[in-house]
Amino acid sequence: MGLIGMNQLTEEEKYEHFMKRIEAGEKIEADDWMPEEYRMALIKLISMHGISEIMGALPEKEWVPRAPSLRRKLGIMAKVQDEMGHGQLLLRVAEDLIKPLGKTREDLIQDLFSGRLKFHNVFHMPAPSWGDAGLIGWLVDGAAIITQTNMLNASYGPYARALKRICAEEVFHAQHGEAIIMALAEGSEQQREMLQDAINRWWESLLMFFGPDKAERTGSSKQDITIKYKIRTKTNEELRQDFFNKYIPRIKSLGLTVPDETMYYDEEQEKWIYQQPDWNKLKQIMKNQGPKSEERLKLRMTAYETNAWVREALGVKSKAM
């Protein structure tokens, strides 16, 4: 492709050239030509991923001031800080993608408030005990690590680079979560119960974490497009099976159980057979009608609006400078 090449190509030729690049493992950059479908799929995926990190800080954040020791207070502060930091990285990637559409972070935040921009299903759930704080770090982050590492080689360069930073920190998150649940698992009867309750409470959400295996379950799924464009490689179901492979043996080794008595590993099919969660609940959550959807959105909205004067004050200033 020569210097003036790109402009002279038809849309079709541009598309072909683009597909050749991603098939050759090249990375697409923010200002490169990209098909509309690709841009839109990225915007949807990355803005949701980013805003989920920001909203995901909230259930754990409830436990930051209440963490039971100084070390745990420091650990969970650092962990929730990372979630905000991951949100920052991902929103920056999304913001560069929406820039040509004339949009900014302000629009993303407003889209969150209006319900146009969704946040991940797990963050609509309550976290009523310290056991939940541990479980989120252990299993929810474990699930997040599985989906995020699946996209480390994403064809979109800025996303792949952000994920590389994020996954490096997720290793700390996983260990932070394990430290909390290990103390509970090896603790008193009451502490073990706290942990088992949390697993029971979160099991269905963990199954839903990876999304439906087929679009019919909820009426929509973007997995095909993201695989076509080499943004990710594995299907929702493959990721869920990876999660079972990694975590079911660990759960069992601690003498804990999952609330699905029928679940077993089928040696022949080489996969876990489990009871489907109630996907209608996911549909509700996708409409921001989950158990904590409204409360968490309101928390973020109140904080954002209460602080609007700060952004106005310095925004005006930078204009004057």
């Binding site: 302000e106 106005e312 310095l314 005006v316 204009k319």
Partner: peptide, 11 residues
Amino acid sequence: MSNQSHDFYQE
């Protein structure tokens, strides 16, 4: 408000 917030968000 929105315009001023835009001014706040410089890259």
